[in-house]
Computed example of a mutant assay.
Amino acid sequence: MTPADGDRLATWLEDLGLAAHLGEAGLPTFTRDPSGLAVWTEPDRLDELDRLLHSVGSEPEHAVPVGLVVLARQARLRTELLASPWFTYDTLAEVRGASVDATRYAVHKAAQTHRLLVVPVEERTIVPAFQLLPDGELRPDLAPVLEPLLAARMDPWRAWAWLTQPAALTLGQAPERAVTDPDLTDLVLHAAVRLAETLSRDSTSRQDR
């Protein structure tokens, strides 16, 4: 692939908003030199990269790299989730009026018993606020929803999204809000259990391969 071809490939990825996700997908990345030309980290892999990115669909020349689209969507969702309220050990300790050590212990214990969702962010652990009462204690109405999902080892980011994003199943409400509606409580609990069962089956299937 010529430098001009590599530049066109880079421009295509930029136009799709996917260039920033190449490294996360384990693919060659690029920067722009002072003249604006794309400089790839592994230019010898560009033919392979081009084939890979255009390998989906019946018309490869018009294909969109689905894997990168998924990564980009996940990145946007994580940004949205991190824009919602959450606590660190320190800030949760302030709300609870407890020491940081006592709060850390309580969080770990609740997480181990599948009653609290904790999410790793870089080198720290955060606690999404939706699952807590104003005084920082656990919402008892969420425990039956959290327990099957967390026991099934659902990815924390996916669990956070599933619980807090509006869903057609719950009439456009987020499951964590719908569970407070007596008309929807059983539906949310059933959905959580079924999802947990699916996760467990998928995990077992992967282990058996």
Rank of each mutant, 00 (worst) to 15 (best):
V119K: 05
L117I: 00
L133K: 12
R158K: 13
L116N: 00
R78S: 08
E80S: 09
D50Q: 07
R115Y: 09
T29R: 01
R45Y: 13
V145K: 02
A102I: 07
L116Y: 08
A106G: 07
V39I: 11
P43F: 06
Q165P: 00
A152S: 14
P140S: 11
A143D: 10
D155C: 07
E59W: 05
R139I: 10
L68F: 08
R78T: 01
L27A: 06
S35N: 13
D101I: 06
D141A: 13
S58H: 09
L117C: 04
G67I: 02
Q131F: 03
A152R: 04
L82V: 07
W160Y: 15
D186H: 13
G17T: 13
E147Q: 15
F130T: 03
V70T: 14
R194E: 14
W157K: 03
P166D: 05
L92K: 10
L77N: 09
L22Q: 09
V118T: 15
L52P: 11
D208L: 15
E61H: 09
F30L: 04
T204S: 13
A10W: 03
S205P: 00
G36W: 04
M154Y: 04
D33V: 00
A25N: 12
V118L: 00
L149N: 05
S55T: 07
A196Y: 06
V56Q: 12
R32G: 07
W86M: 05
G36Y: 02
S58Y: 09
R8W: 08
L52E: 15
R45W: 12
L46P: 05
R206I: 12
L92S: 11
E197Q: 15
D183L: 09
G136M: 15
T31P: 02
G172L: 00
L13E: 01
L187M: 13
E197V: 13
V56K: 10
V145H: 01
W157S: 06
L37P: 00
P134F: 13
W12K: 05
V193K: 14
I126F: 09
R124M: 13
A167H: 01
P166A: 02
E147N: 14
P65T: 06
P60I: 04
